[in-house]
Amino acid sequence: MRAISDSYAFLRQTSEAQVERTVLAKGHQYLKVSSQGRAALLVLGNVERDPQGDIEVWYSGAREVLRIQNGRLLGATGLSTEWMNVRLASPPDWLSVAGPTSYARRRDMMPGYDFDESDKVTVQPIGMPSDTRYTGPGAARLRWYVEHSQGRIALRDARYAVTQKDGRAVVVYGEQCLDRGLCISWQRWPAEA
């Protein structure tokens, strides 16, 4: 119950500093999510096993839900724009990306009943951005990537910060726009060195 009370709603939370001062319940994993100057803590509710990688399901106290697989947004509900039924066709492993590499993404979007929206997504490594919202230590030691999507609905580029643990990639930070007006960033919280 404490973990749920820690998970502020996007709609009510106004201070990122307040989220960062929150004393977290032990034994839970959190995600700090920011959008349009507001911040929230989401708690890891469950992990769904999938052949392409585990899907983490994160919940806020106001029923916002993010589904994240290998650091990429696989679903967002309870927000003004929702992504549902997101399908990624063979996205590359982060550590294997040395130059531009593409994959396909399909998704359903609300509002507007936009079903089976299709994007060609190209991922490539970049230097650490100067305008990132990442607040953890060791940002310069992280591997940074950008994903550019081409589709009917123009979206700003997504960005990710990746570290390596036990020989595998772990995305510790991501930024993704769901539409032209709603962009979110998320970061594993508390930030680790």
Rank of each mutant, 00 (worst) to 15 (best):
S149G: 06
E48K: 13
T81G: 01
L155E: 13
A40D: 02
A62G: 14
Q124T: 02
G99E: 12
L182D: 13
L178H: 10
R63H: 14
R21W: 03
L44H: 09
Q29W: 02
D108K: 07
A62N: 11
Q164H: 01
V171M: 14
G71M: 06
Q69M: 02
A140V: 07
V121Q: 13
L66T: 01
S5W: 15
Y113G: 04
R159H: 11
L11A: 13
W144Y: 10
W144S: 12
Q124M: 06
E16M: 06
S90G: 02
V86Q: 04
L79Q: 12
A193Y: 08
A17V: 04
Q176Y: 14
R38K: 15
G45I: 07
S7L: 08
P100N: 13
K26S: 09
E20H: 08
G45P: 04
G174S: 10
N85P: 00
T77H: 09
I184D: 08
E48I: 08
M109K: 10
R105M: 12
F10T: 11
P137F: 05
R133D: 15
F10I: 08
S185A: 09
R107I: 08
P137V: 06
V65T: 14
R180P: 00
G174I: 01
L95I: 04
D50L: 02
G127V: 02
G71Q: 05
S15R: 07
K32A: 06
R133Y: 11
I4Y: 12
P190K: 06
S185K: 08
A161I: 01
F10N: 04
P137L: 11
Y8C: 05
M128Q: 15
N70P: 03
A169T: 04
V172G: 12
I55T: 13
A154S: 14
S5G: 09
G53Q: 13
R180F: 13
A40Q: 14
I184L: 15
Q69G: 00
R63A: 10
P111M: 12
M1C: 05
R152E: 13
V43R: 15
A158L: 00
L142P: 09
E117F: 03
L11F: 12
V146W: 03
K32H: 13
Q36S: 15
A98R: 15
K26N: 11
D131V: 05
Q187L: 00
R107Q: 15
Q52D: 07
L73E: 03
L42E: 09
L31H: 10
I126R: 15
N70F: 01
L24G: 05
L73R: 08
R12A: 09
L79W: 15
D114T: 11
C183R: 11
A140W: 10
Q124H: 09
V57Y: 07
P111L: 08
A191C: 02
W189G: 00
T132P: 03
S35Q: 13
D157E: 14
V23S: 06
R156M: 02
G71T: 03
R72S: 01
G71N: 09
V123Q: 12
G174F: 07
D93L: 04
Q13E: 11
Y59W: 12
D166T: 05
P111A: 14
